[in-house]
């Protein structure tokens, strides 16, 4: 197969132009909001427009809010990252006999896949902030908060720091220096799962979480 590589690259090199055009400066959207309040307002509006839920809380109050919202949705078992940045605060809030029960994502998936797919009602994760222009949350899964945590359970609660809201994706990529090291799967989440494949009509909750609940911590 390295022959294929050599042949493909050979054909391309034989035909490649002598020079490449220069980079063109990328336009900045004229509606870029400058201050925190504007960023938050845009972030919230975009998310609510696609049926995501957005709540505000302060640094001490968000765990209680998560518990209240989870109970209101009838969540019995709430998954979280066992070694994640939210873990301590969540454990402090949720006493052992409380509802919902806190379930740590502690073992590799192979050990408990069946339970994840059928026995978990919601997941809660941290984030790396958000993007105001498109109403997107930046998720940076890793060993502490694995990928399926925000994907398999039908409800996803995510904690976003208001101070980590960026105007655009370009801003976030630059400010957070993504190019210096990408995780296995970084992602932008901009609402609950949906599809318009039937009659171009939007239906929610197709494969990913049916509900996307964003708690912005100010």
């Amino acid at each position: 197969m390295s022959d294929a590589r050599a042949r493909i690259l050979g054909r391309l090199r034989a035909a490649a132009p002598a020079s490449a055009p220069d980079r063109v400066p990328v336009p900045i959207s004229p509606a870029t909001p400058a201050n925190q309040a504007d960023l938050l307002a845009s972030f919230r509006a975009r998310l609510e427009a696609v049926r995501a839920e957005v709540h505000l809380a302060d640094a001490d109050g968000w765990p209680a809010l998560v518990q209240r919202l989870a109970r209101a949705r009838g969540v019995a078992r709430l998954l979280f990252g066992a070694d994640g940045q939210l873990a301590d605060a969540l454990r402090r809030q949720f006493a052992d006999e409380d509802t919902p029960a806190l379930v740590p994502y502690a073992d590799p998936i192979e050990a408990w896949k069946g339970e994840l797919f059928s026995g978990i009602d919601a997941g809660v994760t941290s984030s790396l902030g958000g993007i105001a222009e498109t109403g997107s949350v930046i998720l940076w899964p890793g060993p502490a908060e694995p990928r399926l945590l925000s994907l398999v359970p039908p409800v996803h609660f995510v904690i976003v720091a208001a101070a980590q809201l960026h105007a655009t994706l370009a801003d976030a990529i630059a400010a957070q220096r993504w190019a210096e090291g990408m995780p296995t799967n970084a992602l932008l989440i901009s609402g609950p799962s949906k599809s318009a494949d039937i009659e171009q009509t939007i239906a929610y909750g197709v494969h990913g979480p049916k509900a996307f609940v964003v708690i912005v911590v100010t």
Partner: peptide
């Protein structure tokens, strides 16, 4: 404005 998910797999 954007799709529900944008994945960056590395």
């Amino acid at each position: 404005p954007i799709t529900t998910y944008v994945n960056f797999i590395s």
